[in-house]
Design a protein around this nucleic acid. Structure first.
Lengths: 335, 335
DNA sequence: TGTTGCAGGTTACGCGATTAACCTATTGTT
DNA sequence: AACAATAGGTTAATCGCGTAACCTGCAACA
């Protein structure tokens, strides 16, 4: 096998005439009981021979892994392209950085059910898991079977002993958008979401709260490929509103494009607010006004919460990340 | 630790009064020397007790890992957001599917140098690696130190014994774009690229070949945040061309947006062709004419090549994926 | 002189799965 | 009757590392 010739602890120990325990202790900084001379000698030899630990052996011995699993719901709405979704890929990007920073490794996996994630965790003796995009129902009967600490990055609201939870303030985001629209003179406001309402309900409630009255609701297909026809069917209805609050930037940008193709300008004819603060929102024309969440903060919160849970530190299990309205050019004052 | 109570092979064996070897053999389908009764009994018990293998132990014993590492060059041009890049995230998405399909697990990692990838491979006893975005120079003195089979998904052209290589036909892509532009009556054509020319040079040569004469070259910054000012500085120069071939869809779409903001329409005033065939190209307005590559095919080719190399099958080490010009609405006939 | 203490290690087992080598009882063969 | 062959297993070593328990020799102290 290709790994022939790899340097083991035993090799180092033999060449130096010390025991493997000594080498292992040096490697882990347990040098109180080792003379400075020996420490130096071991360190030198390790360097010289280019020692690289064999994680399989280490984790078998320690019964943990230094691996954090990031498991993403392979929801049909993505049509097989989850990792290409801007929100998901931003999450993966930042999680990857935080995980590496903490000295862990990342295994990335799509899964359709939470139970797959559980098996995954068990197979690899994962130290922790970050779950993205699963809904409350998905966790139902797994509560007791999940033995590894994990945090829900998105999509669940009830933190428990082994459940960490990082949420953004969806309600407040909706409220800010609503209040802003009201201040800009908008009354007839439409909320666009898909029927996976478990994610977006709070945004809707916040919107109504900010507006001071109920907004209308329009449900579109989750599947990107079907969405345009949803808009097309309801083009006339859309014309009845002065502003739209979309449940995600993606929906907002799609809508703007669609409206443009049908002779309606944004914000000239209709104002649009998105949700996420994605990179696309910043570079779109017109720049999208959107409720932005800080993915960096969110990933950081998720990983540091997870690490606390792994180390057994008692801690608040739910972390709420604030959002703020980022003004672009997609909302116009009217009235 | 949380893994207490996990079922081991030994538990199964003890409860059945057989040896661990027997259970292990059943698990691996080596049932020639085991009676049907015993096989059934073991299988039943495994099912019953919910046995899940401990990979750490298995891989220590077997000296491999069932892990494929996907290592992406954390190039400064991405400013820390590699995994959010459309091309990269599409690659990760498809690789993830192919890897899972083949019964392997994926570890995802950013790295700045190929040598980091080498250490990574060694630590985890990776069965194979897929490297994305590294340039020829990056591999220089590592050729001999890399012991794990790996394939280069993007960015290198010289396959060798342990190097697999999946490339797209950059030259032909450029040629197709050039020929099409010529047929549409364009003469003054600009090629836009960044200074990481190792990737784009063939596209440029192909373009010239297709056009039948040399195209002009414009180098912009690799960093997204600096690119707009690059365009701005050279706005007047841009006006001198009837068509632009951009080295990526991202550049093309940015340029279209920029031109729009400056009163130039695409394809009215300038025609634009991109490269990649990204999802954004399809949904942009106007739809982008682009040289598209099939990410599915590419990932499939990469993983199946890697698997062949892992299993020691002798095989052609370079796979070239064809590209084809996808017509959108961003090129106009002139003259 | 006998005892304690400590510095500086070493020994040896366990983690869970794999696998080559070995065993035993039964049936078949000459 | 003597022997071989086969079915159906079992035994025990091994992978590389971590770590609790155990040594050993010298200095200090009463």
């Amino acid at each position: 096998m290709w790994s022939e010739g790899k340097v083991r602890i035993r090799d180092i120990a033999d060449e130096l005439g010390v025991s493997t325990a000594t080498v292992s202790n040096v490697l882990h900084g347990k040098t109180e009981k080792i003379s400075e001379r020996t420490v130096k000698a071991v360190e030198k030899k390790l360097e010289e021979r280019g020692y690289i630990p064999n994680m399989a052996a280490a984790l078998l011995a320690r019964n943990n892994s230094r691996i954090i699993g990031v498991v993403v719901n392979d929801h049909p709405k993505y049509e097989g392209h989850v990792f290409e979704d801007p929100f998901i890929s931003a999450a993966v990007n930042h999680l990857s950085d935080r995980i590496e920073e903490a000295g862990y490794y990342m295994m990335l996996k799509k899964a359709r059910r939470v139970s797959d994630a559980v098996v995954f965790a068990s197979i690899w003796n994962l130290d922790g898991m970050v779950l993205i995009g699963f809904c409350e129902d998905d966790y139902q009967d797994l509560r007791d079977r999940i033995r590894v600490p994990f945090v829900i990055y998105d999509g669940f609201a009830d933190a428990q002993e082994r459940f960490g939870n990082v949420v953004i303030d969806d309600f407040d985001g909706g409220r800010q958008a609503g209040a802003y629209l009201r201040d800009m003179g908008h009354e007839r406001v439409l909320f666009i979401s898909d029927n996976d309402i478990c994610m977006d309900h709070l945004r809707y409630l916040g919107l109504c709260d900010g507006l001071g009255h109920k907004a209308e609701l329009m449900i579109v297909s989750m599947k990107a490929s079907e969405r345009e026809s949803c808009y097309r069917e309801r083009l006339e209805a859309l014309k009845g509103y002065t502003a739209v609050f979309a449940a995600s930037d993606q929906y907002a940008l799609e809508l703007i494009r669609f409206l443009g193709q049908n002779g309606l300008s944004v914000p000239g004819d209709i104002s649009v607010i998105g949700f996420d603060g994605s990179r696309e929102a910043k570079s779109a024309a017109p720049r999208l006004t959107t409720v932005s969440q800080d993915n960096f903060l969110r990933a950081e919160a998720a990983v540091s919460l997870l690490l606390k849970m792994i180390s057994g530190t008692d801690t608040e299990k739910t972390v709420t990340i604030p959002v703020k309205l980022t003004l672009g050019e997609s909302v116009r004052r009217i009235g």
